[in-house]
Design a binder for these strands. Structure first.
Lengths: 132, 132
DNA sequence: ATGTGTATTGACGTTAACGTCAACGTCATT
DNA sequence: AATGACGTTGACGTTAACGTCAATACACAT
């Protein structure tokens, strides 16, 4: 069974720690497309996954546009040689960017680790009794 | 010699690929504090390093405030036990956030790698002659 | 003296990503 | 019939991080 359950707007909002306004905004901008019965929104499991990915992108500092573009790549292994080659190009671009970001991240973490060490050393110096 | 050279605003802008407006904005907000002779700005090597760190933070999706806070941590291993402990707390927070980001990044890269594989497979399928 | 280049300070404009109302409908309870 | 809980659509407000002028200053070369 393909998980036929649906989620209300406040279900999803609560689960992911965003406001309903955010979800309506995402729909308005085309980043989400929940089913509509009357005016009411019903989010599917697929919508939920998509939201999760969008928020992951957000935590990475990507714009909603960028997140959406990447997510669309996930669904795209179709088309002729031309399309596939173009897709590979886009993937390479993204990968390069994300890998640069990973490098920046590693550098920052290393810097913080350095400070943390110095900090512990200073603390130990300050209280030589119970070192460790 | 402690690298006594100084940089003009457009020097730095060109080197880091930002506009002079950006640098003035950073000063206005207190993220940079170049020397002033008359009205003209002279950026030191230290200013340059700080800018580099700010931009690194920016690439990570941090706000300027956040970058500045982190950078200030770098200069902070001073003060009494109370200060040091507080600093360690902040460092732990930051590290947690950045490590979550690293996880998100890894997941995204893995997803992209999956698409890339599928894409290559599709291409190979499409042209069985010269595989590899 | 006139231009050319680089610097400055306002000051208003812009975009993304929502926040914050207001005004309203619907359904289940009380 | 009224109260709440949840949903809806506008529509205007907000913040960060600059962009985009305009007007001005200063140094130097022609």
């Amino acid at each position: 069974m393909p998980d036929t359950r649906s989620y209300s707007i406040s279900d999803l909002a609560a689960e992911f720690g965003v406001t309903t306004r955010t979800l309506r905004f995402y729909e308005e901008k085309g980043f989400l497309a929940p089913e509509r019965r009357g005016r009411v929104r019903y989010f599917s499991a697929a919508d939920r996954v998509r939201l999760r990915l969008i928020l992951r992108g957000r935590r990475l500092g990507l714009s909603l546009e960028e997140s959406a573009e990447i997510i669309d790549l996930y669904q795209a292994p179709e088309g002729g040689k031309r399309q596939l080659t173009a897709l590979l190009g886009k993937l390479a671009e993204r990968r390069a960017q994300l890998e640069k970001q990973a490098a920046d991240l590693a550098a920052t973490l290393a810097d913080l680790a350095g400070v943390e060490d110095a900090c512990r050393a200073a603390l130990a110096d300050l209280n030589p009794a119970r070192s460790r």
